[in-house]
Nucleic acid binder design. Sequence first.
DNA 1: TTGCTCCATTTTGTTGACAATCCGGCTCGT
DNA 2: ACGAGCCGGATTGTCAACAAAATGGAGCAA
Lengths: 226, 226
Amino acid sequence: MVQAPAQVHTRADEAFDCLQTAIVMGDLAPGEKIGEVELCSRFNLTRGPLREALGRLESRGLLVRRPHAGVKVVSVSAEELLELYRIREVMEGLAARQAAERMTDEEIRDLKATLDSHEKMIDEAQGQAYYQAEGDYDFHHRIATGSRNTKLAQMLLGDLYYMVRMYRYRLSTSAGRPHMALGEHRRIVEAIAQRDGELAEFLMKRHINAARQNIEQKIQEGVLTI
Amino acid sequence: MVQAPAQVHTRADEAFDCLQTAIVMGDLAPGEKIGEVELCSRFNLTRGPLREALGRLESRGLLVRRPHAGVKVVSVSAEELLELYRIREVMEGLAARQAAERMTDEEIRDLKATLDSHEKMIDEAQGQAYYQAEGDYDFHHRIATGSRNTKLAQMLLGDLYYMVRMYRYRLSTSAGRPHMALGEHRRIVEAIAQRDGELAEFLMKRHINAARQNIEQKIQEGVLTI
DNA sequence: TTGCTCCATTTTGTTGACAATCCGGCTCGT
DNA sequence: ACGAGCCGGATTGTCAACAAAATGGAGCAA
């Protein structure tokens, strides 16, 4: 979807991608228990590759599987969603620090350009928070890969983001935050451009902390029901 | 092995555990390419469950798989091992902080008792750094679960520790560090007992940072060849 | 009526065989 | 002699049928 797979030749990879996007997009509701044969008919697969993909998904924590009892999409509680942001805070803080130390000048230029395009998108489609959500993901994606920390990027991109995005589609970010978030992004990039890792880490942690508090507030207001 | 699986009924789980421990213990050398049928005969399995386990292992980053070309155990470079410690630093720092806020009094008592038994083990089998390594793992394991952060514990226990342990068996920790590490552990537990999350986080980060520097130094000395 | 037990159906777990793909060695041409 | 193309063997990916286990309902007893 957003992360173009190099080449998906095998059926199992195909099944994996299909299921993953289906879960993230909400086509498969959290807590929903699904039979293997139904999934096979829905995605035109046989059970062999499907089971392999199921194993991968389970290992990533997107679904749980009880022996002989079937699989069901994982349902994350409000508390667990907030915990996810706590993890993001420290991990992306590290990513920002390492990105400041290791990103190439060209990557930093691209990053700035990305922010410019995000700003245009926000201005054009104001209120359409969806684009902001995608843009936000794009920003954090670049920082993660820019850290040159293979495992860190793998954990952020492969584990955390999918779980977060799973809820992004449901709870489009609040109206006021896109502009604020963009400003925070700009300051982070500035710190990276100045190769100030410590500052970049601090700003990134504060940025994600703000996002978490935003969600927390909405939950307390009863706007968000998870 | 060290983590008794609740109940491994399915063959795929069995295969997963076998392969995982085989990789961690070094029975399957990093970079070694292995055929599916050979694995089947070695662990008395059929290819179905094996492939499912292989998918899970790949998803966890313990082995890589090229379509139609076979699987090979992942080989981590020295730089990547150090990067792993950087990730541990921030994640376990968070775990320590949350553990200080959320562990029950009983869990803290158990944690102290664990340290006492570690001390005895170190005194009895001095030089035998192996026990220390296991004890160290046990300590960090308890902190991770004590954080009450499901995903955090899952990522630490399911992803990072296995990769770290993969090298622990090869590069038994240096002679002097066990005693020092134990002292650091004690101070961390003290901070947790006082419910001082901030201090616990700081101490844990410094503890892991020290371990990282220890490894880094040994690599530069040429003692460690990875 | 309520609870338990037993049974049948459905679903999962497993197996072995089949088809597609890649790697190594060989032959042939220049 | 050296490189390119080709073929055979082996290995992986896929499939459909078989066996085991659990859920749900029906029947019976209290």
